[in-house]
Simulated assay, not measured.
Amino acid sequence: MSRPPITKSGSERLRGELERLKSVDRPRIIAAIAEARAHGDLKENAEYHAARELQSFTEGRIAQLEALLSNAEVIDVAKLNPGKRVVFGAIVDLEDEDSGVAVTYQIVGDLEADIKQSLIAVSSPIARALIGKHEGDSFEFTAPNGVKHYEITGVRYE
């Protein structure tokens, strides 16, 4: 079984979330359960049931993060030296050849992908189309709303 890749910054971000869940959220939830339990009858105590549900969600997320981080292979993008070739960890500036709209994405592991932060999974269709290309190359890929044509205007590693 291969280990899923993750960038060093993605690993640090997930470790930060794990630490917050363990040191801040978990004690807060335990206190909320104790307070709700003090109110008496647990069968009809909505505060108690809400706190227990939140505890279950939080413990599940803690277990998930611990498993992900223990299996992931951390790759320090700053130590890569691929030149202007697109590989895992690259921050890629693209220009839509049809509309002229410019976008920037970083190719990251599946564990840390977040399109809202312009972090795209290495397994995504656009990332698979980008891997191995160079700055100045044009490429196309099939998006959910049709075929897109892009030019790679910049490649960098931070």
Rank of each mutant, 00 (worst) to 15 (best):
R85G: 09
I75F: 00
T142W: 09
Y150F: 15
S9P: 03
T142K: 13
D25F: 10
R13V: 09
E12R: 13
L42T: 14
I131G: 10
Y48T: 09
S56Y: 11
Y157P: 04
L54I: 14
I29Q: 05
A67E: 05
L14R: 05
S70E: 12
I115Q: 13
H39P: 04
G132T: 07
V92T: 03
L68E: 11
N145H: 08
R15M: 10
Y150H: 10
K133M: 08
V86D: 03
D137M: 01
G100C: 04
P27G: 09
I126R: 06
A113Q: 04
L42P: 12
I33M: 07
I107A: 00
L68Q: 10
A46P: 15
G146H: 08
S56E: 10
T58P: 00
F141L: 02
D93E: 12
E53V: 12
V87F: 05
E112G: 03
Y150S: 00
E47K: 08
I75Q: 02
A31S: 14
I115C: 08
D137G: 06
Y157K: 01
R20Y: 13
G83Y: 05
A121P: 09
K84D: 15
E135F: 08
A50G: 13
G136T: 08
T7Q: 02
D137E: 06
S11T: 07
Q64G: 07
A127Q: 03
I107W: 03
R61L: 00
S70M: 06
R26N: 11
N71Q: 15
E66G: 03
D41R: 11
S2K: 10
E53D: 13
D137F: 02
Y48I: 10
V103E: 14
Y48R: 04
F139V: 08
L119W: 09
D76G: 01
I126W: 02
L65D: 04
E66M: 00
A36S: 08
S23C: 12
E59I: 04
K84T: 13
I107M: 06
D137N: 10
V103W: 08
A50C: 12
Q106F: 05
E44L: 13
Y150R: 02
K22H: 11
G132N: 06
R61H: 04
L80I: 02
A36W: 06
G100M: 09
D93F: 00
P27R: 07
I126D: 01
Q64V: 07
P27N: 09
A67N: 05
I131D: 08
E17M: 04
R28I: 12
E97A: 10
D114K: 07
R156A: 00
E44W: 13
R85K: 15
K84E: 15
T58Q: 06
Y48F: 11
I29N: 06
E35R: 14
T7E: 00
H149S: 14
L68K: 08
N81G: 06
A32C: 01
T104E: 07
S123C: 05
I152W: 01
A90S: 14
S124M: 11
I30C: 09
I33P: 02
H39C: 12
V74N: 04
G109H: 00
P125G: 10
D114V: 06
L14S: 02
N45G: 09
E17A: 03
A34C: 10
A121R: 08
E17K: 04
N71G: 13
L65M: 03
R26I: 11
E19N: 15
F57R: 15
D98I: 13
V122L: 13
N145E: 07
G10T: 02
F88G: 01
E140T: 15
G60N: 05
